[in-house]
Structures are given as structure tokens and as C-alpha cells.
Design a protein around this nucleic acid. Structure first.
Lengths: 261, 261
DNA sequence: CTATAGTATTTATACTAATAAATAGAATTA
DNA sequence: TAATTCTATTTATTAGTATAAATACTATAG
């Protein structure tokens, strides 16, 4: 949140750096952000309504709206109509942050191997961090997700759902680990893989061996987690990820053949 | 990019899910995004100007401007005035993505140890991936950054600059590794640490031992990189990170004492 | 006294029209 | 030819008006 450097009017051509005019709306956005951090505002606190903002910043309705739109897109406020409506401060939801990061990656689409390489790094740590923090309800969720994959899938739809459940297993762990960044990366990678799985791999014939291996690892992991053995959980997850990486490579190979044929 | 579910008017109360009206501007944003992916538009391609968008979407100028503002905030377009002005497609710059992710983390400020824990995971991999890809100019940059830390700092300002140079060393490696996500995380963590260093640690008396250890690791790393020995680079980086993590813990302890006194 | 329906108010949402600022490129001048 | 001024195009900003949505409050019915 940098201080908006007011562009001086009468200046020689000598300044090559950032002589760019800062738009009114963006100035307002920065002011609001400063106001939030300086006054230690918390999620739920309300911003002044549009009329007051117009007066405060001496600008028109349209400009205020643009500023509020900016804050809304960034996920920092949500806007409601009606009495007691207006803009209220929000903690940025995961979905928002995730979507914005995906925009960033749009023109350099990470490949499967890249995603799995990262996953191999972070998932074992997530497992280890989550181990001492899992509650009864978390175990219940993990159980049900494992159960979901036990029975062999009868059709495409079921196979898809089992894949999602497999991934959800990792999301539960990510949510429980108390390192916000690690959790974010974990969830984000899962989302990326989910899209890969759904849009690319699903059309291939059943990958019995693959699913079976995953299920086994998840079962073993669940045991280790219940025993609160962080080190074992880390080890198992590492093996799980290496196995998944290997299977992914194989799948992509098959997909290649499938595509050429 | 979900399909905007038109909210049905006469419906029983049974739907708890997302009956929320989608704002006109957001609909336009989604349309534009679809247009980009469907037509495979690339950075540099221009969007229709405001007037055309108004006609195309049958809406007013204000609404178009809100939509464009949204796209601008997301870093997907940049907008210029004048002839040949208007909105052009951009690849989202790192700074934008970084800032948006920081908003997400604002209310759950990651602690030093959390940041270093992640760093210990990713930096060794970054070093290994960068090893075969470094060009002459990259080596030159690394050299100059190391040189910058050779001479003992005479004052606060110099000490600060050396710290920045130390971190920049890691940014160079991140930029060279061809895994976009890993690179992003690496740079992001460096930014976080830079802020920690600048705002928290700088006031403490000189950390000679710390800086010296870092410098040594960087020198050894540079050798390994020149020898194109990825495995050695990974090992060295791992040790470097463990050492840095350890020093950070110590620093935070000293800071605590400093603060209490 | 309680639940329901109606009403009024607050607030965002959307549109129109007009002016200001920026700039690329054409026309002009020395 | 080279610098300068002019001009057309396009966004930036403003003002004012009207509409639609959400909700708190009130009145009514049971």
C-alpha cells in the first residue's frame, strides 16, 4: 500500500520514473486500504455509504463506484443493497484468491508434471502439520471420503466422484494445518489437479491400479493420523505423492497415444 | 468461469444455494473472459472500445467502465487513453498476483517460522531446477549480488541493502526455474521476508554471524551452479535454509527480549 | 400475544449527457 | 528536414435522474 506519489505539474522532462497520473478511483482504493490498516478495522466493519464517500473524497458517484468495484474484485469488501447495506469489510475468501492466482497462470498453463512436482514438496509437510490438529469431525470426514472410494465405480459419473473424493481427502488435511500459506498452496494444487482430472483424464478407460494405490495410501495415512504419528504420516504422504506423480506420467503417455490414434 | 445461473422468480424456498443476482458488470466480465479463452486471444490483443462494448452488451457507459475496472484490477487488461487507447490484454504481472495474494493473507498474517518452513521446502527444488538453465547474464547478476555482500556494511542503510541483495539472489534463481508456480511461490516468500526484515529485524544490532553464514552459502551455491551440479545445489540450499530458519528463530528471540526491555 | 403481510426507507444499480484530459498522428511552419 | 502545433479519437470524470432490491418497521389478522 504505497503512498500515492502526487505527480508534480511543473517539472522538467528529466523524470523518467512513474510520471503516470494515478486515477481518482485508485487513489480512493488506497486511502480506504490505509484506513483499514491504520484503524485496525476488522471483517464485518462497515465502510461509509456511497453518498458519504462522495463527500469525503469530493468526487462523483461513478468514481466511488469504480473504487468500490475494485475493492470488491479484490475480495476485500462485499456490497449489499437495502437498509444497513453498503460495503462491509470481508476476509478474502479462498475462492477469490485462488481465481486471481489462476488468472496469473493463464498464459503459462502449468503442466501436470509441474503441478505434481510441487505437490510432492508440500503435501508431506501438510500431513505432518495436520497430524496433531485433527478433530473427531475431521476424522469422520476423512473416513467418509475413503469409504466413498471403497466400492468399485459402476459408471463414469461414479468414477468422477471418487476422483473428487480422493482429492477432497487432501483438502481436509490442508484446512487443518495451521500454516495459512501452506494450506492455500495445498488447496490450490488440488483445484488444478481436479481440473486436469475432469477435463483430460476422465475419458480414458478405468485406471483400476491407480485408484487402488491411492486408496491404500489414504487408508494407511488415516491410521498414522489416528496414531498421531506425524513422521509416519509425512513418510506415507511422500510415497503417495511419488506414486501419484508416476501414475500421472503414465496416464499422460496413454493420453498421448489415445490422442494420436 | 461458471455459467451465470439466472435467478428464477417463482420458486419455492427449497433452494438454499446461490439465488444471488449477478450484476450486469460482472456478467460482462465473464463474457469477456470467455471471449478471450474461446478465441484464444493473446497478450497485446485489443478489446473493443467503450462505445462498442456499450452497444454489444446493450448497457451504459458506467456499467462498461465498471467491467473494465474489474478486469484491470485483476491484471488482465491495461487501459490507456487517447487514439489507439482502450483496453489491451495483458499477462498478469507478478506484482499484481502477489499483491492480491497478500490481501488474502492480511487477516492471518503468516509468522516468520511459517514462512521459513515453506521456504525450506521450495528453495532447494528451485535451485535444482534453475541449475541447468542459468545463462551467462544470470551468473553475472548472482556474482554482483554476492559481491555486494562481501564488504562489511558501514551503516544502517548499507546493511539494509545487503539484506535485499541476499534475497535478490533467490529471486534470480526463481526467475530461471521453468516451473511457473514454484517461481511464483519463491518470489512471494522472498517478498514476505523482505518486509519482515525491513520492518522488524533491521533495528537490531548487526547480525555479523548470520550475514556471514548466508554469504558463505551463496558462494558455495554459485560454485555448484557453475558446475551444473543440481544435486549439490539442492543439498546446499537445503542446508542454507535450515541455517536461515535457525537464525530467524534466534533473531525473533532477541527481538522479544529487546521489546520487553 | 403471535405470526403474517404490507409499507416505507435506505441503499445500491443503471442510464444519460456533457466536459476534461491524454495522446497518436497529421498538418504546419521555420 | 525537424521541430512544433493542431486535431481527432478515446478514456476519465462529473452531475443528475430514475429504478430496483433489501430490510426494518408497522399494521393487521388470527
Amino acid at each position: 500500500m504505497a503512498i500515492p506519489s502526487q505527480a508534480p505539474k511543473n517539472m522538467q522532462q528529466q523524470d523518467f520514473e512513474a510520471p503516470k497520473r494515478i486515477k481518482r478511483a485508485d487513489q480512493i482504493v488506497e486511502s480506504v486500504k490505509r484506513w483499514v490498516v491504520v484503524n485496525g478495522k476488522q471483517p464485518g466493519d462497515r465502510l461509509p455509504n456511497e453518498r458519504e464517500l462522495m463527500e469525503q473524497f469530493e468526487c462523483s458517484k461513478g468514481t466511488v463506484r469504480e473504487a468500490l468495484k475494485s475493492l470488491e474484485v479484490q475480495g476485500l469488501v462485499s456490497i449489499k443493497t437495502g437498509p444497513n447495506g453498503g460495503a462491509v469489510l470481508e476476509r478474502v475468501p479462498y475462492e477469490k484468491a485462488s481465481q486471481l492466482l489462476r488468472n496469473f497462470l493463464h498464459f503459462e498453463q502449468p503442466t501436470g508434471p509441474e503441478i505434481y512436482a510441487l505437490r510432492t514438496l508440500v503435501e508431506p509437510e501438510i500431513a505432518a502439520l495436520a497430524t496433531p490438529r485433527l478433530q473427531d469431525e475431521d476424522f469422520a470426514r476423512l473416513e467418509s471420503l475413503v469409504a466413498c472410494c471403497e466400492t468399485p465405480a459402476r459408471n463414469f459419473e461414479e468414477r468422477m466422484q471418487q476422483r473428487i473424493a480422493e482429492l477432497e481427502f487432501h483438502v481436509v488435511l490442508a484446512e487443518c494445518c495451521d500454516n495459512a500459506m501452506l494450506a492455500f498452496i495445498g488447496r490450490f494444487l488440488n483445484d488444478m489437479i481436479r481440473d486436469l482430472v475432469i477435463f483430460k483424464k476422465a475419458q480414458l478407460p478405468e485406471q483400476q491400479e491407480f485408484s487402488c494405490a491411492n486408496l491404500n495410501y489414504h487408508k494407511q495415512l488415516l491410521e498414522a493420523l489416528r496414531a498421531r504419528d506425524a513422521e509416519l504420516a509425512r513418510q506415507l504422504m511422500r510415497q503417495h505423492m511419488q506414486s501419484a506423480e508416476h501414475f500421472n506420467r503414465e496416464l499422460e503417455g496413454q493420453l498421448q497415444k489415445h490422442f494420436l490414434a
